[in-house]
Write a protein that binds this DNA or RNA. Structure first.
Lengths: 340, 340
DNA sequence: TTGAAAGCGCTAACAG
DNA sequence: CTGTTAGCGCTTTCAA
């Protein structure tokens, strides 16, 4: 079978001390309690034997696992991998590990995942999934488990969060379109159950108002999910109900669906209709119509979230913190002046 | 602090039995050792109290964690997320969890990750990273820890693997190009340290020979990594050294780089040069030149890998298994007959 | 069929 | 500064 594991007792025996002393010598935090020479001897022994502490045993004793759960809707959505990398790399700096799980925004799956994660005694959670009035989130808050939400803010609750500056992003998009001469601007808004959906929707009405423009009912469709399918469906609906010359999609995935429908209907982007996205996910610059969109600092969002969570898990603070990260408008070829 | 956890003792007390009996009653495998009524009482008590076994404690006792490590080069490469999802979902069916780590194909990182995973007592490994003569792999084999490689086969070693049918895929690509009338076909081969690089390179020479065609030195460039940058560099090199009318890239990422270089040089694809990829990753159908490529069953590869690993971890078998999954040629707009 | 007892490897409280 | 002791929650002998 598997090679016999080197245990703390082995190290202690090798160094001629009691296991407890070896334990102290090996931990940064308690090393000062040990005679310098003794400590050195223990460290040498540990090194020599290739000692690697058993985190399971440590967890059982301390109740902490040095693990954070990361709940995401779906890893295959290209928005998430860079964020997850930011999280993982930042956690790793403190020897924490991320436990990733996909929830597909499905209540049942979410409950199952939450149970599995808690059975594993994770020290904290990063939620890229939270909806308004999120059940998972409520449970975690009740049990005082550290949580950070990313790209989602929970309604009224006091939870740390990291999000892109939706307001600035949408505002920049609207300014850009108005600057090109568009006055009839429509939007495909995200689901109202997601904070990104709501905040971007609010931002666009505000942005248009700033220019003295409105958003009549015919020019708004709410997507039921941030999916290409929904992008296609919503665009079709808009084409039937409005004469808008530009469409602001709540994210890139929806925008990609829009482009499909336009092509299927024989319309050209940007000549007939301008389209914008949000997030600047992978390959948006290489589409047949390179997408004008809002770039958010994906990886940095993960980094920030992990930092805030680490602070909480390590007990360095319990202040809630809301990081709003800067965005950047990226103008490509999906936007142009409206036809005369 | 955190809500007090319901423990096995609580359940036992509630049911009026000894913890050991409760333990037996709660486990499928040992339930038959317990009086039916007693067992029912225990189960009811567990349910009522909302008992969730502490996996940490179980691990310490049994040595098994119900966890598998998944080592990938980089999660942000769109090839991997669907595979990882297949792995996660399949592991979850047996209440196993995946622990994902990115190695960036960096030796130091790999060693660090391996140590971290072993400190956490994972029960098995899925490697999407293995190179030829892989150090990590060798260690795992030596210590008899269950391993499955995906998209990589280790040279000469006896490790279970899951891979797409590289041979059939490349062969289909070559047949397709020859069928269009190409005779001067070049290739951007993958790194020779990766089995995918080697096997696809072998497959193309074999495929060309079948048609009486050769692959002179000027028509081969080896990429140092499966990256867009390398695709750009290699394409530039090919353009300088050959008059090929078609380029077979060893994967989609390289192919995307090729397209960039062609555009930068003022060449059109497919009119001037045909290009093909491999994998059919996300958005290859929506590029400005939709890519002709080979579709592999991403998610299914993950599913197969997880199944094989589960069999090994649960001790159901120790036979090594090599799954080669079927591919499909997807013809899009990056290939056409050569200019006159 | 059930209970008693031991122990996985570690760390923290307490003594000395 | 170091050793003793105890115990985290669970499973698995062994004994009754």
């Amino acid at each position: 079978m598997q090679q016999l594991r080197v245990t703390l007792r082995d190290v202690a025996a090798h160094a001629g001390v009691h296991p407890a002393t070896a334990s102290r010598a090996l931990s940064e935090a308690t090393r000062h309690q040990v005679n310098v020479e003794t400590a050195a001897r223990v460290v040498a022994a540990a090194h020599e034997l290739g000692y690697e502490p058993d985190l399971t045993a440590r967890t059982l004793r301390t109740g902490r696992t040095a693990t954070a759960a990361v709940l995401i809707p779906d890893l295959t959505n290209p928005l998430f991998p860079p964020i997850v990398r930011g999280i993982e790399d930042t956690l790793a700096e403190r020897d924490f590990t991320a436990l990733i799980a996909n929830t597909d925004n499905d209540g049942g799956r979410e409950r199952r995942v939450l149970r599995a994660m808690r059975a594993r005694n994770v020290d904290g959670f990063i939620l890229l999934t939270a909806h308004r009035n999120d059940e998972t989130l409520a449970t975690l808050i009740r049990d005082q488990i550290p949580v950070v939400t990313v790209n989602r803010t929970a309604s009224g609750s006091d939870v740390s969060s990291v999000s892109p500056d939706d307001n600035a992003g949408i505002s920049a998009v609207v300014d850009h379109l108005v600057g090109l001469g568009h006055t009839r601007i429509a939007t495909i808004a995200g689901p109202r159950t997601l904070s990104t959906g709501r905040s971007r929707y609010k931002a666009i009405t505000a942005g248009l108002r700033k220019h003295g423009l409105g958003l009549p009912t015919g020019r708004v469709v709410f997507a039921r999910a941030f999916s290409e399918d929904e992008g296609r469906r919503c665009m079709a609906e808009l084409l039937d109900s409005t004469d808008a010359t530009a469409v602001v999609a709540a994210n890139d995935t929806l925008a990609v669906g829009c482009l499909d429908t336009l092509r299927d209907r024989g319309l050209r982007c940007p000549q007939d209709v301008s389209v914008t996205g949000f997030n600047d996910i992978l390959f948006m610059d290489k589409l047949s119509t390179p997408l004008t969109t809002v770039r958010i600092p994906h990886t940095q969002m993960g980094v920030e979230a992990a930092r805030i969570l680490l602070d909480q898990m390590l007990g360095r603070t319990d202040a809630t913190k809301h990081a709003v990260l800067p965005i950047q408008l990226v103008v490509r070829e999906s936007t142009a002046a409206p036809k005369r």
